[in-house]
């Protein structure tokens, strides 16, 4: 279980593996403090205080993340206090974000609230994400 290699973010997903990997589901009553690291999908309905590395992340309505999200696909319907580094970002109308959204493609619904910048970045930015000062802690 190595950390998610970000260079793989740009490559097409390995469909076979992606389907094999089951979805992690963090329920409403769950609070996680720390780092979540997966090459699969995470659905957050509860609270995460810390960093999330995933292939695909869904932050559901009622979910709260305080920390950075690094993923290929991110869909936000809940609250985020932190940064997103993702190729494809989807913000639903109930999204409430304080922080920055680094993206390559962005879909944003009417009603989504974003306080902060949403910088566009080229593909190679996400390849070299781990070396960038912005992700250093």
């Amino acid at each position: 279980m190595s950390a998610l290699s970000l260079s793989s973010l740009v490559k097409p997903p390995r469909r076979d593996d992606a389907e094999e990997l089951p979805v992690s589901h963090l329920g409403r009553a769950l609070t996680v403090r720390g780092v979540l690291d997966t090459e699969g999908e995470i659905r957050v309905h509860g609270k995460v205080l810390g960093r999330i590395n995933a292939d695909c992340l869904v932050l559901d309505t009622g979910g709260l993340v305080e920390g950075d999200i690094v993923a290929r696909d991110v869909r936000v319907s809940g609250r985020l206090n932190g940064r997103i580094f993702a190729l494809h970002v989807t913000l639903d109308s109930s999204a409430d974000i304080t922080g920055r959204v680094f993206h390559h493609t962005l879909t944003m619904a009417k009603g989504a609230r974003v306080e902060g910048r949403m910088p566009w970045r080229p593909l190679n930015y996400f390849e070299t994400l781990e070396q960038l000062p912005e992700t250093r802690q």
Partner: peptide
């Protein structure tokens, strides 16, 4: 809550 086999968590779960 399901922590799938592909997920590694460093920290507390409550």
């Amino acid at each position: 809550s399901v922590i799938s086999k592909a997920l590694k968590i460093t920290g507390q779960l409550e």
